[in-house]
Design a protein around this nucleic acid. Sequence first.
DNA 1: GTCTATAGGCCGATAGAC
DNA 2: GTCTATCGGCCTATAGAC
Lengths: 218, 218
Amino acid sequence: MDQNIVTQPKCSEADAVTAEMSPKRRQVVEAAETLFFANGYGAVSMDQIARTAGVSKATLYAYFPSKDALFAHIVATKGADSPLSCDLFPDDVADLRATLEDIGGRILKFMLLDRTLAIYRIALAESGRFPELGRAFYQNGPQQFATRFQTWLGHLQSQGLVKVPDLALATHQFMALMRCGVFFRRSLSLPPEPSELEINQTIAAAAETFLRAYAVNS
Amino acid sequence: MDQNIVTQPKCSEADAVTAEMSPKRRQVVEAAETLFFANGYGAVSMDQIARTAGVSKATLYAYFPSKDALFAHIVATKGADSPLSCDLFPDDVADLRATLEDIGGRILKFMLLDRTLAIYRIALAESGRFPELGRAFYQNGPQQFATRFQTWLGHLQSQGLVKVPDLALATHQFMALMRCGVFFRRSLSLPPEPSELEINQTIAAAAETFLRAYAVNS
DNA sequence: GTCTATAGGCCGATAGAC
DNA sequence: GTCTATCGGCCTATAGAC
């Protein structure tokens, strides 16, 4: 089993595009992505991927040397996109509550996407046997958000808007408050589908609790 | 694939004990438990279980008609024990902070056990294909704690110790605050092993944030 | 490059001897 | 009850024709 399945040497942009341009390869990647994210690693066979992609298994193995390698490629290239636009963390905060709700809302809605949940489930499930997988997921997803949020929180503190004794811990608390209830339930595939109302309540409550814990009363 | 894999008709206590008394069966169950919890569902074979248990596959199939059924039995019987002693939620609370830290500490340390984490990972990973699994895990674990905590929180409120507009939501927030940081990292199999200090900081910070959000200033 | 065909092995599950 | 031996099938991966 390939040990270093995820952190692979980055191809140049041109290489990546060229390689991705081959239509059969694209079909393979798309089929594998769909199937892995829908069913996990173990329950998907190379036959199934080849059939879904509309190519033969030999072609599949011409592009990827093993099932592990294909899985690693999918996770490394498709698991990294998180909704971190530059304007998500404004320098000047007029309404702290509204800003927190905006940030939290975007990240919670991203976390609740079927695709994001699928990646999370797979990373968690396979992290024991593919140690790089848990690490790659954490670094590409939660860690990036946490870093930016923590920096932003530091700025807020230097502006006197909040008083946070431990920035990293408060950041993790904010993220955890977002994961409470709705996300936890959905991650276990439990019905019902969360309503817009319930999501907004979670966001509002998280912001409220965070503010009560850390906002400076002015 | 057996649809209703977990919620199976309960045997009488006597039956269960009798069935469990057969030494070969006990060996099978123990081997399966170890292997499933260590490696998940897909990565474990019936050959492996039989070999580990020291019995033949035929014997294994004499006790359990299929791999699914064996898996279901393991999850149903071994996944339910949670640390809910009666005295965990005291009626009279002298020191609210200390009590919250005590409750939170016990539940966090339980959640961080390798065995608990393994069950959590499997429930989450297989919840898509075994819908009953996510439900059973939730009901036997988090839901039971949540119910008791919420009731206890209601008592605190009627005593005027806290002001909680939404008991269920606050309960989920408390649990989420416990899952922040350490648990989230461990669930993805990420090093380092959490230190006692880090665990205690998480607990203290969760209690602190919860108190700031909901405690009544007297 | 892409296919068909198949190797070689492990899978879940079973038949039949004792 | 428990074993040995084995089935048919699907698995990952490859050889060889075009």
